[in-house]
C-alpha cells in the first residue's frame, strides 16, 4: 500500500510553449512517482533507511530510487469527517475530541484542512497552517443530513493530489452512505491514480445490508468501500469499537503516518499508460512493507 504521486514538471514545459488561453495540458510531462511506504519489523517501525535500502519494481522492472524522505518531511493532512444526522449525540462529541487531538498532533510546518461530509460537502478551512481555524471549525460542527461518503473520499483524494509534501487523507464515518453523486468505482479509480494515502476510521457495526437511516431514507453500510479505498492507497481502515476509542484511533494513524517514508523515482523501462503493479522490498532485512499495490495512469 502506499501513496503514489505524479509530480508534473511544469517549468520546462511552460518555457518551451507559447502562451495559451487555456491551462497547459502537460503534453510533454516528466513524471516522478512518489510512494509512501510503511516499513515495520518485529519491534515496530524501522526508521533510518535510505535510497539504497529499497528495491522498487514497477511492472516488474527494477527502478532507481532517487530520494527517500521520512520523519523530517512536513505532512499535509486532510481530515474528512462524517457529520451526518446519525452522528448526533455522544458520537459527535467524541469525534470532535478526536479531531482536536489530531490537530494538536500536527507540527509546525505541517498543514491541515477539514472537509465535512453530510448531504453535501463543506471545506473549511482549506489546507493550510492555521490550526486555530481548524479547532474553531471543529468546535462549530453540528450533525445533520445524509452521508456523502464517496464524494467526501474523492474530495480528500483530489484536494490532496494538489497539495505538496507527504499527504494523508483521513476519512471518518459511521459507515453509511446515501447522498453521494460519485460512484464507488470512479472514486476507487481516482484513489488509484492519485498520490494520497487514505486512512479510514469507522465506528459502528460491520455488514453490507441495507438499513433505514434518518427519516427512513435507505442507506448502505460502506465498510467494504473504505477497506478498498484505504488498501488501494496504501493506508488502512481502523475500526473503533466505541466513540471513546476514536481519539486513540486518530492519533494512532497520525503517529504511524509520521513513520512512513516517501520514496521518489522516475519510471524507466515501462509503458506509461495503464496499471503499474508495484513491488517494494527492503534489502537485507526482514521487514513488512506496506505500500499501494500499484498506480494508474491515463493515456
Amino acid at each position: 500500500m502506499q501513496a503514489v504521486v505524479l509530480v508534473l514538471s511544469l517549468s520546462a514545459v511552460a518555457s518551451a510553449q507559447p502562451p495559451r488561453a487555456r491551462p497547459p495540458r502537460f503534453g510533454s510531462r516528466v513524471e516522478v512517482v512518489k510512494l509512501s511506504v510503511l516499513v515495520r519489523g518485529s519491534e515496530g517501525p524501522i526508521l533510518g533507511l535510505g535510497p539504497a535500502d529499497f528495491e522498487v519494481r514497477d511492472n516488474g522492472v527494477a527502478q532507481q530510487v532517487e530520494r527517500v524522505e521520512s520523519e523530517e518531511l512536513p505532512l499535509s493532512v486532510i481530515l474528512a469527517l462524517d457529520v451526518s444526522g446519525s452522528m448526533k449525540g455522544e458520537t459527535l462529541v467524541e469525534v470532535k475530541r478526536a479531531a482536536h487531538g489530531l490537530v494538536e498532533g500536527l507540527h509546525p510546518g505541517d498543514r491541515g484542512g477539514l472537509v465535512t461530509l453530510a448531504s453535501t460537502l463543506s471545506l473549511q478551512p482549506a489546507l493550510g497552517g492555521d490550526f486555530g481555524a481548524i479547532h474553531a471549525r471543529i468546535d462549530a460542527l453540528e450533525a445533520e443530513g445524509g452521508t456523502s461518503l464517496m464524494d467526501g473520499a474523492f474530495a480528500a483524494v483530489a484536494l490532496g493530489d494538489a497539495a505538496a509534501g507527504h499527504v494523508l487523507a483521513m476519512v471518518f464515518t459511521d459507515g453509511h452512505e446515501n447522498a453521494s453523486w460519485l460512484r464507488e468505482d470512479d472514486v476507487l479509480d481516482a484513489a488509484r491514480r492519485g498520490e494520497v494515502v487514505v486512512y479510514g476510521v469507522r465506528i459502528g457495526g460491520d455488514g453490507w445490508g441495507l438499513c433505514m437511516g434518518d427519516g427512513g431514507v435507505p442507506v448502505r453500510d460502506a465498510s467494504a468501500f473504505l477497506d478498498l479505498v484505504t488498501s488501494a492507497t496504501g493506508g488502512r481502515l481502523v475500526k473503533a469499537a466505541s466513540p471513546e476509542r476514536l481519539r486513540q484511533a486518530f492519533l494512532e494513524i497520525l503517529t504511524e503516518f509520521r513513520t512512513r517514508y516517501l520514496l521518489r523515482y522516475t519510471p524507466r523501462g515501462v509503458e506509461r499508460p495503464g496499471w503499474h503493479r508495484l513491488e517494494v522490498r527492503v534489502k537485507g532485512r526482514a521487514a513488512k512493507v506496506t505500500v499501494r499495490k500499484g498506480y494508474l495512469r491515463t493515456p
Binding site: 505524479l6 491551462p23 460537502l121 471545506l123 482549506a126 483530489a158 494538489a162 470512479d186 491515463t298
Partner: peptide
C-alpha cells in the same frame, strides 16, 4: 482527474465545496 488534469480538478472542486 480521470483525464490526468489533477491540478485543474482540485481547482474546480475546492471553490465548489468551500463554505
Amino acid at each position: 482527474h480521470s483525464l490526468g488534469e489533477r491540478g485543474e480538478a482540485a481547482s474546480v472542486l475546492g471553490p465548489a465545496i468551500e463554505e
